[in-house]
C-alpha cells in the first residue's frame, strides 16, 4: 500500500477542560483497507472518531484527505468529503420512521418536495436492513418501536446509504446477535473489496482479527503501536492495549544499568 492514503491524521490533539483526551495522534488509512482502532475504555477512540466525522472537531493537528489538507469543523464538512460514521449511541431520531432516519440530512426531493416513494424504495433495497433484520423490515414505523439490534442496523444502513469513501464505525456489533455479527462482518469485507476505507472501533478482538488489516492501538490518548493484524497475535495486541509492555517494570528491565546510577 504505497498509494496516497484516503485519510491521514498528523498530530491530532483534543482537550476537554483539564483532560487531554488526544495527544499527537498519527493515523493513516488507505482505500480498501480496514483499520481497527483498539484501546481500553477512555483511551480516546470515540473522541478520535468524532474528530474525524466533525462531530467533535480536533483542537490541533492536520487532517489530510487524499493527500490534501482539509478542515473538518462540522459534520457537514466530513459528509462532503465522503466520510460517514456510526456512533456508539447510534444518534437516531426516535420520533421519525426508519426511512426518515436513513435519509436524514440527505433526503431525496422532487421539486423541493420529499420523494417518499423513492426513499422507501431505496430503503427496502438497503443491504443492512435486509440482512440484519430477519424478515422484510417495516420501514414506516418510528425508530422508537425498534429493538436495539434493529436500531443498530438502521444506523449502519444510514452510514452506508451515502456510499462513503471512508466509513467509521464505533462498536457497530455491540447490539447484534452472533449470526447478525457474522453477516455484518461479511458486509464489511464486501465494502472493503469495493474500495471503501473502513475504520472500526471494537472491544471485540475476535471481530478485529476477523476483518481488520491493520490495528492502531490508543492508550491514554496517545498512539501506542500499529500492528499488521494477520501476523500479530492476540496477546501482543492485548498487552499493547493494557500497557503491559509499557510500565515501570518493563522499562526498568530494558534500561541499561549505567543509566540507573
Amino acid at each position: 500500500m504505497s498509494s496516497t492514503p484516503v485519510l491521514a491524521l498528523h498530530g491530532i490533539c483534543k482537550r476537554f477542560g483539564a483532560v487531554q483526551a488526544l495527544t499527537d495522534i498519527e493515523l493513516e488509512i488507505h482505500a480498501g483497507e480496514v483499520v481497527a482502532l483498539v484501546g481500553d475504555n477512555g483511551a480516546g477512540k470515540s473522541t478520535l472518531l468524532k474528530a474525524i466525522t466533525g462531530v467533535g472537531p480536533a483542537d490541533a493537528g492536520v487532517i489530510e484527505w487524499c493527500g490534501r489538507p482539509v478542515r473538518i469543523q462540522r459534520p457537514r464538512d466530513a459528509q462532503e468529503l465522503g466520510i460517514a460514521g456510526v456512533y456508539q449511541d447510534l444518534a437516531l431520531c426516535e420520533n421519525l420512521d426508519v426511512v426518515g432516519n436513513l435519509f436524514l440530512g440527505h433526503e431525496i426531493t422532487r421539486a423541493g418536495v420529499l420523494d417518499e416513494v423513492a426513499m422507501e424504495r431505496q430503503a427496502l433495497e438497503l443491504e443492512p436492513l435486509a440482512i440484519l433484520t430477519k424478515h422484510r423490515p417495516n420501514v414506516r414505523v418510528p425508530v422508537a418501536t425498534l429493538s436495539a439490534g434493529q436500531r443498530q442496523s438502521v444506523a449502519i444502513g444510514r452510514a452506508i446509504l451515502s456510499r462513503p469513501r471512508l466509513l467509521v464505525l464505533d462498536e457497530p456489533t455491540a447490539a447484534l446477535g452472533i449470526e447478525q455479527t457474522a453477516q455484518f462482518l461479511d458486509l464489511i469485507d464486501r465494502l472493503r473489496d469495493q474500495g471503501t476505507a473502513i475504520m472500526l472501533i471494537s472491544h471485540n478482538l475476535g471481530d478485529v482479527k476477523a476483518v481488520a488489516d491493520q490495528a492502531a492501538v490508543l492508550r491514554h490518548g496517545r498512539n501506542n503501536g500499529f500492528f499488521d493484524v494477520p501476523s500479530t497475535t492476540h496477546e501482543q495486541i492485548v498487552s499493547s492495549i493494557t500497557g503491559a509492555t509499557d510500565n515501570a517494570v518493563t522499562q526498568r528491565a530494558t534500561k541499561p544499568w549505567e543509566d540507573m546510577l
Binding site: V55, R74, P75, A91, C93, E94, N101, L104, G105
Partner: peptide
C-alpha cells in the same frame, strides 16, 4: 426528536 442526532446528520 433528538437534536444531537440531527446535528450529526449534518443538519
Amino acid at each position: 426528536g433528538e437534536a444531537e442526532a440531527a446535528r450529526r446528520s449534518g443538519i
